[in-house]
């Protein structure tokens, strides 16, 4: 695929930046890390673009690059605290504290998953079908199905534990 100009490519990313934001939210612990990962993903998308084949959906390809980048970057943050530091996130708690609390609990639970499980649950939460998840992750549909059951069970336990701790 012919490489567009940086300006054209930036406009393309701007249009689909929600994908990158979701990935950075799941894989980082605070705004600074989030911005670093966002930059890294943009850079990797730019570098990988010449290899993008039009037969794949652009958003699917973006998820692949973003998740692959996050998975190989998150390693560096393995010793950092988890999502306990949610205070660093600008959650609009004043507007709807109950909802904000629920989102905090969900993110806190997701942050405790391993890199691969994070990717799978993120794609599922984003409404991707099992086929799409399998195609992005390079695994079978059956494997996705089995893994999702385990991940959801684990998430439920983690959210319940956090709720008990809070109450």
């Amino acid at each position: 695929m012919q490489r567009p100009s940086k300006k054209e490519f930036s406009q393309l990313i701007e249009k689909h930046q929600a994908i990158i934001h979701k990935v950075t939210l799941v894989y980082t612990n605070g705004p600074a890390d989030r911005e670093d990962l966002f930059q890294e993903i943009c850079l990797q998308l730019w570098k990988a673009y010449p290899n993008f084949r039009a037969e794949a959906k652009l958003t699917t390809w973006m998820y692949r690059v973003a998740l692959n980048t996050a998975i190989s970057t998150v390693r560096k943050n393995r010793n950092r605290p988890g999502f306990e530091s949610l205070g660093a996130y600008d959650l609009a708690t004043d507007e709807n504290p109950e909802e904000a609390e629920q989102v905090k609990l969900l993110y806190s639970a997701i942050s405790k998953l391993n890199s691969i499980d994070k990717a799978i649950i993120l794609l599922w939460l984003e409404g991707k079908s099992y086929d799409e998840i399998a195609s992005i992750m390079g695994t079978s549909k059956d494997n996705v199905s089995v893994k999702l059951v385990r991940i959801k069970r684990k998430l439920e336990e983690l959210v319940n534990d956090s709720e008990k701790e809070l109450s």
């Binding site: 406009q11 966002f38 890294e40 850079l43 600008d90 609009a92 909802e99 629920q102 989102v103």
Partner: peptide, 27 residues
């Protein structure tokens, strides 16, 4: 609810263009 609650400041294309010239820290 994430999208409503997290004030993820969207980047405009000029910021993104700057990121494309940055340095990578990947493996």
């Amino acid at each position: 609810k994430t999208e409503n609650l997290i004030g993820s400041s969207g980047y405009d294309s000029s910021n993104i263009e700057r990121f494309l010239s940055g340095r990578s820290h990947s493996t």
